[in-house]
């Protein structure tokens, strides 16, 4: 006769997982106390925030032409960095993709490069490139490019690895070269994913490029920093609103493109 007693509701945790659970829980509690976040401080901060908001409005549009000019440069920086990054991400992702990489050594090297580019934040890359190529948009473009290689490289490689193997096998059986196989079967199948990743990269690049100016890598970020440093909160408000408009516009445009192409 089979045992008809219902099984236990919960599995009893073993000593190891119980210990890990306790340690993680303790760490989380400790983290909360470490960061000095308290309701009291937040409440005390509200008037300061209020007075800043008060000084922000109405926004000062006197410097609007200069701000728009810088905003355009910011967008151009994002666009160029993103395009360069995507173009370079493609060959690197082919080298990194399982089944497409010509050699295991190349595969591991490409994966390591992508991981490095992805894990180091773009702000850090910007700091490095400001030192290397000097202040200005060129450093920002380089930082965005490297960041996008890391971001898109990984997703391009995954999209190609997931592409249907059938057509690839058919082309291999025809006697196609590896390049022929990639461009005839893999890329067409992975294209929707490529487009989605590219558009998302651009959105991310536009948002990121705003921050890069803070460390001197060109664009509107510099204006924003100066405005805050000089307590010109009304100018800062104009800058923030234009950034907001730009990011929304890019996201909407990329949504339209996504719907059309995919």
């Amino acid at each position: 006769m089979a045992d008809l007693t219902a099984p236990m509701r919960w599995e009893r945790p073993n000593a190891l997982s119980f210990t890990i659970g306790v340690v993680v829980f303790a760490f989380v509690i400790w983290s909360f106390s470490s960061v000095g976040l308290s309701l009291e401080r937040i409440v005390r901060g509200i008037p300061a925030l209020g007075s800043m908001l008060e000084r922000m409005f109405p926004p000062d549009i006197e410097r609007l032409p200069r701000i728009l000019e810088q905003l355009l440069i910011t967008f151009q920086m994002a666009l160029v960095g993103c395009i360069l990054g995507l173009v370079l991400a493609f060959p690197i992702s082919v080298l990194a993709a399982e089944g497409l990489s010509p050699h295991p050594v190349l595969k591991h090297a490409a994966r390591a490069l992508i991981a490095l580019f992805r894990t180091v934040p773009d702000l850090v890359w910007a700091l490095l490139f400001v030192i290397a190529v000097g202040l200005g948009p060129a450093a920002g473009v380089m930082a965005i490019m490297v960041d996008k290689i890391g971001f898109a490289g990984r997703f391009f490689a995954e999209a190609m690895e997931e592409a249907d193997k059938g057509p690839q096998e058919a082309l291999a059986t025809i006697g196609a070269t590896r390049t022929g196989l990639i461009f005839s079967a893999v890329v067409p199948l992975a294209l929707p994913s490529f487009v989605a990743t590219s558009l998302f990269s651009l959105e991310k690049a536009v948002r990121g490029s705003v921050i890069l100016g803070l460390v001197g890598a060109g664009g509107i970020g510099v204006e924003l920093k100066v405005a805050f440093d000089l307590f010109n909160y009304d100018t800062a408000a104009t800058i923030i609103l234009t950034i907001f408009a730009l990011v929304i516009a890019v996201e909407q445009a990329s949504n339209v493109i996504r719907r059309r192409l995919i």
Binding site: G175, A176, T177, T179, G180, F183, S184
Partner: peptide, 14 residues
């Protein structure tokens, strides 16, 4: 794509 049996390059891709 069948022509990739005897030729390679972009002209055989599309």
């Amino acid at each position: 794509h069948g022509v990739q049996a005897r030729m390679s390059g972009p002209r055989s891709w599309h």
